[in-house]
Design a protein around this nucleic acid. Structure first.
Lengths: 339, 339
DNA sequence: AACAGCATTCAAAGCGATTTCAATTTTGGA
DNA sequence: TCCAAAATTGAAATCGCTTTGAATGCTGTT
């Protein structure tokens, strides 16, 4: 069912039918109704390719993901939020997976050159993000999930990682902890650097010295977290508290604590960052997990909104959002043990 | 940079340039080289919309996901495998997220009517899957991840869930277990029904009676698994072994076992199904987890391959693959305790 | 030298929508 | 009743590519 068919069926020109369906004012109300009804009844939908060619808009936004490390549970949630909002505008989300950094830049170039997408989402940026620079050069609109230090203006949405870690660390200090381990994300990623800043700030505010042996940088998988936590627990004096970068990390730390024959919440404390996964609930852990919480799904939804505003013409320089992070105290964080 | 520009730049017609780039035989080798070099140097890439309109192919395949329950870690892995293969053919993956079943069918209709995708991937089907019927009616090619009972031929790839559960159950029976709980997927999903068949077959082969109280059907999240396992452990006589439907489920069961003051691998055994998540490794659990294993990422890759074959004209009736499932025994499955 | 036959190249017609510009119909006021 | 203005509709151009059918250039044979 093409526009032409529909037009013939109605005894109208393609022009009028097109206008009727797209809500142009110069079509008689009675005609519009007649057209809409026929379209609905016959199940007419404009051919996406033709529409895109005619309008020059791709009707899609792109998301490039690096292998499995980025296509983890975080991205799932994020994508779900993003997609929900975009669907309402009939905008597709085109997901491209790549294996290496090299491939990633090539993928952006490819998407840009073939005009497959109108805009992109960029996530987990580094402090000086090459991809952001590239997209700026290519003049492809994008919204950044996180922040990066580029000179040109960039639209972004980020959570207050520094504030979150500062509060979490301070809370543990209040509870008497002095040896607080930080299992942070990959070095160089902005969010990891920001978290480190918050951690450092809290420590130095109390005059607690920073011990590099208590800081680990890695991907957020339970496996590496387990290894890191395990080796940290062998230190003497051992850490009495952990700050875990994600719920996956928390699972690994938890395992290490248990394996060391210790009890979470009494012998060792932990506060984990929770991106709010429906299938991994901090309240349902045993013991329940204290967290710094911010819904990554909501971030996805909101970023869709920002992207739409951007495509609608809102200046990039005006598109910035910094979300506060909740600190939710549960059983996993208790007073420091007395040795 | 359009085809026209490139053609003018080279002093050739669009026709010749197009043919040169698309490998048609009737263009002189020298010309082809000249064109290819210019295209590469100028970074020419055909406009995706125009190409699609001209060829009638959408150059994309669709994936409709129901909210968070389907966009979990399983889908991430699967998507990663799928996307890797598709990228090599310059085929996009369009991801649509929907909240309800109603919305889902509408999404398929929408994608079909607007010809946004050339084919679709369907996953986690029910025994009699409405979506499959719809896509057949709409004449949209698709490959099913799993199986369903429809009368018309359908392309599919599935793992041998029945065999997997039969072997896992038999193994537990060999170890002396007689009260074996099954935490299965949502009732009605084919894979869950198949797993149940395998479980039942193994039980009845040994003359062990089936106890409905030991079977649970739910989504694969650690939370519901925890609740189910918890209540099952309160039964008298209690189950001495669990068959967990996924690694997420296993985490929940694990938590329940620990909370009940029992030891996994001695007091209670468990075999979980492992779809192979890079961030949740059965070998790195404590104790290590016995699993029935099949890489869902590999399945994604292979399905991409099948889809391409299908689009290449291979008859749907010839596209069927049933993958065997490994049984990997580790520490979590031990002999039944003596009461 | 002429010509059949093959190898190359090109002009122009789609693909299915939007949109410009022109044509037609309606409406309302004199 | 008539006419200008407004409302409504339509024909045709356009988006950037592929592809058909025609045209041209070369080759070797007679």
């Amino acid at each position: 069912m093409r526009l032409k068919d529909l037009a013939e069926h109605l005894g109208l020109s393609q022009t009028t039918v097109s206008r009727a369906l797209n809500g142009y004012p110069e079509v008689k109300e009675a005609t519009r109704v007649r057209v809409s009804e026929a379209a609905a009844q016959l199940g007419y939908r404009p051919n996406a390719s033709a529409l895109r060619l005619a309008t020059g808009r791709a009707g899609a936004i792109g998301l490039v993901l690096r292998g499995a490390d980025e296509l983890g549970p975080h991205m799932s949630e994020f994508l779900s939020g993003l997609g929900g909002r975009m669907a309402t505008q009939d905008i597709d989300i085109v997901v491209t997976t790549v294996a290496s950094h090299q491939e990633e830049l090539a993928a952006y170039r490819r998407l840009a050159a073939s005009q497959r997408v109108d805009a992109m989402i960029l996530h987990s940026p580094t402090l000086k993000d090459e991809r952001a620079e590239l997209l700026l050069d290519l003049k492809i609109p994008f919204v950044l999930h996180g922040r990066t230090n580029v000179t040109r203006p960039v639209a972004w949405l980020d959570i207050d990682n520094t504030g979150a870690l500062e509060r979490a660390t301070s809370h543990l200090l209040d509870l008497g902890h002095r040896r607080i381990a930080l299992l942070n994300g990959i070095k160089g990623r902005t969010f990891a650097e920001h978290r480190e800043l918050g951690y450092m700030a809290a420590l130095s505010a109390r005059g607690v010295p920073f011990d590099p042996a208590l800081m680990g940088n890695s991907a957020f998988t339970d496996e590496v977290a387990f290894r890191l936590a395990q080796s940290m627990l062998e230190l003497r004096p051992r850490p009495t508290a952990f700050l875990a970068g994600s719920m996956m990390t928390a699972l690994g730390v938890f395992r290490a604590i248990r394996q060391a024959g210790m009890q979470l919440g009494t012998d060792v404390s932990m506060i984990a960052h929770d991106d709010v996964f429906p299938y991994l609930n901090a309240d349902n852990m045993y013991p329940t997990m204290s967290t710094t919480r911010s819904s990554i799904r909501q971030a996805g939804e909101r970023m869709a909104e920002l992207l739409l505003q951007m495509l609608g013409g809102k200046p990039v320089a005006d598109i910035h959002e910094l979300w506060p992070v909740e600190l939710v105290l549960r059983e996993s964080s208790g007073p420091a043990p007395l040795f």
